[in-house]
Write a protein that binds this DNA or RNA. Structure first.
Lengths: 197, 197
DNA sequence: GGCCGAGTAATCAAACTTGACTAGTCGCGC
DNA sequence: GCGCGACTAGTCAAGTTTGATTACTCGGCC
């Protein structure tokens, strides 16, 4: 699941550098254990992996009180990765966790970019609904009846998501939220993360 | 994810004994790679694990053509486990994959049992909707605006699922599907799986 | 008759997740 | 002045998932 990766990178970015426990508690604040099903162990693993991949830098901090801590910061490559992951999560259907994570990190994109990708999602959902409708007229007959009826539930969820995505797209074009290219965002604010290490 | 476990056990049960590849192709027929995200490797692992846990028995078959195959059969304990997993999946919210798998294996339950557990789901979903509505009136203010707006999507999904679960419950009480206590089900049919090994 | 692609059947190492466990600090009541 | 619970910070082994890879058969066609 790359939702963990996205959330961890995103939180470190938003906090402008953080150590494991900070990420963990921030995610707890956001109730992410529920919708993203993230457990402590995965967070520390994701941080180390991301550091090994060059998306984060590690700074050992002497334990002036308490045990040693490691401070992580997002690299330029890491920021690009976050943006790419958010785009991917918005586009890709059938992965609710990744969608939730992407929404959480939506302000990493510029307004136009976000709208474009949400609209792509809308288009995909519409295509899937058409496809499903066709399939239900001519179902495979070697599949049990109740398995075919599941399709109703999927279609319902697809319609719900469609409505919601359309509303979100509309709200964005009306100027809701502070996006990456708006004044006051992480991008226009003085940003310590521009530094390379 | 115990959805894999449930599907694998369920398919072996429905086929009255099967080897890995049969399970794999049957799941492909049901398009389970899409909604349950099952990959070949996991299937073989799940089979071995279940056998080690006493839910399946293994019968080595000499490769009379092609490589060696292992035939699996569900034990009495395995059947109980399937029933328990289906009940669990129906009850538990926030786990769509497990719900899908449970629906696929719904006829493992008696009609009354299935209805009872689906009704429990309905009650839980209603409680969650009430809880969410309250939370949206008094949101935590340290959470970004767009994260709070995600709740709309969750609520939408919950409502969709609620409607669907109610319909399913109704259909079941009207006699839809062949359940475990109906004539023609795996339970009333002569069943080779009753044998112990 | 020999090779190629499709289908059958499975293994394996690497990556990832999980839950339980460790270990230190801090305040507070007794 | 000490024991206890809560908070901070993280490690670790065990379990699971994944994607790539292996290996064998069979039918067809050049």
């Amino acid at each position: 699941m790359s939702a963990t990766k996205l959330l961890v990178l995103g939180i470190v970015h938003l906090s402008g550098g953080a150590h494991g426990y900070q990420v963990r508690s921030e995610l707890q604040n956001w109730r992410a254990e529920i919708w993203a099903k993230i457990k402590p162990g995965s967070i520390y693993h994701a941080l180390k992996k991301a550091a090994a991949d060059g998306l984060l830098t590690e700074h050992a901090e002497p334990g002036n009180s308490g045990p040693e801590r490691v401070l992580y910061r997002v690299t330029a490559q890491g920021r690009d990765e976050i943006v790419e992951l958010v785009r991917d999560g918005l586009r890709r259907t059938h992965d609710p966790t990744m969608l939730d994570a992407s929404i959480a990190m939506l302000p990493m994109l510029t307004r136009a970019d976000a709208i474009a990708h949400i609209n792509e999602r809308v288009a995909r959902l519409e295509a899937e609904l058409v496809h499903q409708a066709k399939w239900r007229e001519h179902p495979d007959r070697d599949i049990p009846e109740h398995v075919r009826d599941q399709a109703e539930l999927w279609a319902g969820h697809a319609r719900t998501e469609l409505e919601w995505a359309k509303r979100l797209s509309k709200r964005l074009s009306e100027g809701a939220y502070t996006m990456a290219d708006d004044p006051g965002s992480w991008r226009t604010a003085p940003d310590p993360l521009q530094m390379r290490f």
